[in-house]
């Protein structure tokens, strides 16, 4: 029992960090723009394949290319695809769903929908913590994820742009009146979100394997964390991702792995009913 509890705590925190960095862009964009960009998880999958394809040539330096590359791709996606239609959240929503499915189809053409690709880990050993075996690479991913999340939290509270990202959803009109360039800020959020998606793709894809379907479950996770944490809140993301991480691993360990998505979505639904602005979200208006 003790071993299982340790397992839930450690793996929950590791997954929480990975889910957190994968969700940052999605959640902040949702808060800033008032729309859901379903294409972001698909770019997460694209990032994972970029790592698979480039790592034979670039080795350990792959992420130095892929992370900024995916960041730029997300910025380009925002400027060319989202910006022209950002006035209509429903249009963005459906357009990005179609784009995501199109990206999946395109990737399936090149990589096939049935194969799983492996990302070579930086660290290949295991660590034993209280009789729980943990892959060193996964532990590294967890650490990197939490450093990134706390770094973002620091930036959001101590820099002008960070304060703008947090503040804009509370009063978009007011933000524009005082001269905030919302488009530029959104582009920056897309860029940072893309870099974090690449990090998530490296560690998450490295743990579970890379396939063209790998974006579907993270999309569920992104929706849940965004809902539970509250739109556009770094603190909310951090609280929600820990809840989701622990809940998921606990369900898998103590109940049945087959119902993990059901339980996680139930949490999101409960939050929507009883606290629709999320655990740490502020009222938008």
């Amino acid at each position: 029992m003790f071993e299982n509890v340790v397992y839930v705590i450690i793996y929950g925190l590791i997954f929480a960090s990975l889910y957190g960095i994968m969700t940052v862009g999605f959640s902040l964009v949702c808060g800033l723009g008032g729309f859901f960009d379903i294409a972001l998880p698909a770019y997460f999958m694209v990032g994972a394949f970029m790592i698979v394809e480039l790592s034979p040539y670039l080795g350990n330096g792959t992420m130095l290319i892929v992370a900024p590359g995916l960041g730029l791709l997300c910025v380009a996606h925002y400027l060319l695809f989202i910006r022209p239609q950002r006035d209509n959240p429903y249009r963005v929503f459906f357009a990005t769903i179609l784009l995501a499915l199109g990206v999946e189809s395109l990737m399936a053409k090149f990589f096939s929908s049935g194969y799983t690709f492996k990302i070579a880990p930086l660290l290949s050993g295991n660590v034993n913590i209280f009789d729980v075996e943990i892959r060193q690479q996964l532990l590294l991913g967890g650490a990197v994820g939490w450093i990134a999340l706390f770094g973002l939290r620091y930036i959001s509270h101590n820099t002008n742009i960070g304060r703008a990202v947090i503040g804009i959803p509370q009063s978009v009109r007011g933000s524009q009146v005082i001269g905030l360039d919302v488009v530029r800020i959104q582009a920056i959020v897309y860029g940072v979100g893309g870099v974090l998606l690449a990090l998530g793709a490296y560690f998450y894809g490295g743990y579970l394997g890379v396939s063209v379907h790998m974006w579907a479950y993270p999309l569920v996770i992104m929706f849940t964390i965004t809902t539970v944490g509250g739109l556009g809140s770094i603190n909310g993301i951090m609280i929600a991702t820990v809840l989701v991480g622990w809940l998921e691993v606990a369900v898998v360990t103590f109940i049945d792995p087959r119902i993990r998505a059901f339980v996680i979505l139930s949490l999101a639904i409960a939050i929507l009913i009883f606290r629709p602005r999320g655990l740490a979200g502020k009222r938008i208006g």
């Binding site: 800033l32 950002r86 006035d87 209509n88 959240p89 009109r173 524009q176 919302v182 938008i284």
Partner: peptide
């Protein structure tokens, strides 16, 4: 302001 984010926010 007619097409700002607040309008986009439903």
């Amino acid at each position: 302001l007619d097409s700002d984010l607040s309008k986009r926010l439903l």
